[in-house]
Design a protein around this nucleic acid. Structure first.
Lengths: 194, 194
DNA sequence: TCGTTTCGGAACATAATGTTCAGTTTCCGA
DNA sequence: TCGGAAACTGAACATTATGTTCCGAAACGA
């Protein structure tokens, strides 16, 4: 458990690149970006970029990894704090709230211009979160439907909903879209648990 | 409604390109393909390719368009032939069956190597099919949950399930995975219709 | 058969990728 | 604070793909 001190230069470079990526995604979308754009914006040498990341996809993935970690943490907190059945999928609220708070960057990412790569990573992340949740409430009581299938279904559904909400005007309130998700997902889960 | 006779050369070229695309996807996945690969395999001139399609994505989309049309047709048949509530989401069977029959190409397409673009197109297609179905059974009876949201949720879920099934060994039988989908989706739909 | 359309194939301009390397700056800890 | 280690720079370079253009040849269909 040593607190591995990471070289400041590395921290700075990574931070600069992540920041530039986010800024540029808002500006032109992810697909249209080149590595050159990113390093220009970050004012970082070409060689330096490739010393840290394999490609712009890699950089993006690393950014999403941070997001996942932060959401997982909030999920952990929510679970330990709340009652069990009532707060099923409690993390969804955090998710929608987070999306709403960072709505400009969020909408840029799920928008058509950012494209399929971003979305795929997001969906994977959501399925992970859902799986965690399903595992917790499943208790392995000899169900016919595999955990993984349920997670994929509900995770996929959540992603679809999130995309729809984000690509529209997001005029629906966080509470409402969250409620909608829960009313769609929980019956599925219960039905599969029989 | 004139039966526009399409020049044979055009038909041939398109067919050749589609065929080559499918063959190459099985071989190396979609992302790794270049336009050059495709026209080599098809034995078609470079200029000819760009006279028909803007890019390999365009070619792919046009291919998936065919698939969508054929699935929609089977969906239409299934609906006119079956009872209403009992055969809810009857098209899903067609879908899984179709995937199973063309399993080699299907698995190549949803595999990690083919990547996000293919998957995004597939998901869009599924949501379309689901929306059609939901519209049919919805009857606009003043529901709180918008049709579009439900379609996105269930379509996304179906996609997740399909991916999971396809990326695993597809050892689960068509009937079983279809049943699983229906047991997950129908409760959602019913719950949202309240 | 004749006029029209499409195809072929090469050439070309443009642009992005990913690697290499020598020289410089920055960092960290002893 | 100093010295060695590590990270950054910037430019050069090979490679690869993209999309367009042109004209002669071939295939079409009426």
């Amino acid at each position: 458990m040593k607190a591995r001190a990471v070289d400041r230069r590395i921290q700075r470079t990574r931070q600069l690149l992540h920041g530039s990526l986010m800024a540029l995604i808002q500006e032109k979308g992810f697909e249209a970006l080149s590595v050159q754009d990113i390093i220009d914006q970050a004012n970082v040498g070409r060689a330096t970029f490739y010393a840290h990341f394999d490609s712009k996809e890699d950089l993006l993935a690393s950014g999403i990894e941070n997001l996942r970690a932060s959401l997982k943490e909030r999920q952990r907190q929510a679970r330990s704090a709340g009652g069990s059945d009532e707060r099923l999928f409690a993390f969804s609220r955090e998710l929608f709230t987070h999306a709403n708070e960072h709505r400009t960057i969020f909408r840029a990412m799920v928008g058509k211009r950012s494209g399929a790569v971003v979305q795929q990573l997001l969906q994977k992340m959501l399925v992970d979160l859902v799986r965690e949740e399903v595992r917790g409430t499943w208790a392995e009581k000899e169900n016919e439907t595999p955990i993984e299938a349920v997670s994929q279904f509900i995770g996929g559904g959540l992603f679809g909903l999130l995309m729809w909400w984000g690509n529209g005007k997001m005029r629906m309130a966080v509470d409402d879209v969250d409620l909608m998700f829960r009313r769609l997902a929980i019956p599925s889960l219960k039905a599969a648990a029989r």
